[in-house]
Design a protein around this nucleic acid. Sequence first.
DNA 1: TATTGTTATACTCTATAACTATA
DNA 2: TATAGTTATAGAGTATAACAATA
Lengths: 155, 155
Amino acid sequence: MEPTTDLLERPLPASPAASDLAAAVEGLTTLLRTLPLRPAISLTAASTLRTLDHDGPLRLSDLAVRERVTQPAMTQLVTRLERDGLAERRADPLDARVVLVGITAGGAALLRERRAARTAQLDGLIATLPAADRERILAATPALLRLAEAAPAAG
Amino acid sequence: MEPTTDLLERPLPASPAASDLAAAVEGLTTLLRTLPLRPAISLTAASTLRTLDHDGPLRLSDLAVRERVTQPAMTQLVTRLERDGLAERRADPLDARVVLVGITAGGAALLRERRAARTAQLDGLIATLPAADRERILAATPALLRLAEAAPAAG
DNA sequence: TATTGTTATACTCTATAACTATA
DNA sequence: TATAGTTATAGAGTATAACAATA
């Protein structure tokens, strides 16, 4: 890939409104949702598996908070993940009310496969863009991750 | 806002993988979905209304293709939009099989209100980010819109 | 026959309210 | 009483398959 400095020193476009960003996110959501990945699991299921993979076993209620769904919604999602062999319920030896949710080896493997396949597909799409677009998207990705994480603090 | 050149001349981070972009999009999707907008309508419903607002009355089947859902799914969505007074079915005088779907005045008004409210909320979140993040996000937004539109050609 | 749209059916995903079990 | 989780119920949103109406 070319050096990035020349591209980014060019004059920037006039500041697009946040509504453009929102429209872009909606379009990209459709894009991600329609990428041909087998098996097809929901964005929430994938996000929950990533959280479990990264931050180890979590209480079901903590998981619900982190994924911004209600406790009953998480109960159902975990039930589906368990049915599919991707996650499992464990008992908390210290508090019998608590359900600890952990990812299974199968769940972790699925996550790796999907990540690799989707990255390849998304890379393919990004490669069709002009170099300046590619540079700006790559440069903005860490900032977009931080924006996505800014929501809990603001909510 | 500050001049952008100083910020963007700084060294860029190492190229993040497309999987980071995908993770950011998923997080932003959750963010958009959880922004407090009344009434709450789905991303698909909002996108469909935008399409109708922008490109006038469309055949139901064309609408399904453009929104990347099946014909039955669009039938149901249009039924809900019609029930809520946001869209309406019209007859095509040239072909009695065809259903033309148009946005109503109420639908267009809702779109304007939501766009304004969401832009304000998203602007508020973006304002909490470091200046460098803000600049990169704004600089990348047009490119992200083009990426979202690259999907149909690639699919 | 082919096209356009709807209906039938089923599953995911979400919510609120009511409930059970444990602390 | 309070907390953790489940069950009950309802609705949005999605799909495939079967159907009706029109071309």
